[in-house]
Design a protein around this nucleic acid. Structure first.
Lengths: 107, 107
DNA sequence: CCGTATCCCCTAGGATACTG
DNA sequence: CAGTATCCTAGGGGATACGG
């Protein structure tokens, strides 16, 4: 349920989770938690991602209300992607998953 | 990175997340948060899952330290799957994702 | 700089059948 | 009841090429 907007991946029990489980999603959110970025800035930071994938993922995350896209009227036209408030809450939750100790050795 | 234990899906930046993003994982964890279950109990509750998939997922979650498998020495041999402490912590974190308001209408 | 349109490949998911 | 072994297929991921 990660590609092709015409499919109803949003219908899956919880739309948000569908996008979360897609590749790159976590990384994008993590990057935007640090600061807002332009399209190619993200692309450069996320080593290996293609423009196609990034574009798709950004659209989905936008439609889920996780991030916002703002087009700036500058001479070289630029776009800024930033987390919404919901997006920041989500990012914080995801950080908790990372903090989980994988296995309990002592206790 | 969800199937075939011989692949190094565990190497992906954070093994836990790899399993999390797989199908059924979330449902399994949620079910075990309620109570421990036997194999076929889980299978019955999770409508649509096949024994093959369930088996694979359970193994992975066990190897990630999310759940524990206990074989009981009963007449019809039975197995119990239950969340580890880490697993319960994880389940609580995941509940937060569900609680996230999808979009802010008012504010 | 900021994307989209196509096309292709690989693998996660599932169906089926079978074992302890 | 509690699984494993095979095989198939749909679709997510990526490469490439092109457009605003």
């Amino acid at each position: 349920m990660c590609e092709y907007e015409d499919l109803d991946w949003k219908r899956e029990w919880h739309g948000l989770w569908s996008v979360l489980s897609c590749k790159w999603t976590f990384h994008v959110i993590r990057l935007l938690l640090i600061d807002d970025h332009g399209f190619n800035e993200i692309k450069r930071e996320l080593d290996g991602i293609t423009a196609t994938m990034l574009s798709r993922r950004l659209k989905q995350l936008e439609s889920e209300g996780i991030l916002e896209r703002e087009v700036l009227d500058t001479s070289p036209p630029s776009t800024r992607y930033s987390l919404t408030e919901t997006g920041e809450e989500l990012a914080e939750i995801l950080r908790q998953v990372e903090q989980l100790r994988p296995l309990s050795d002592d206790e």
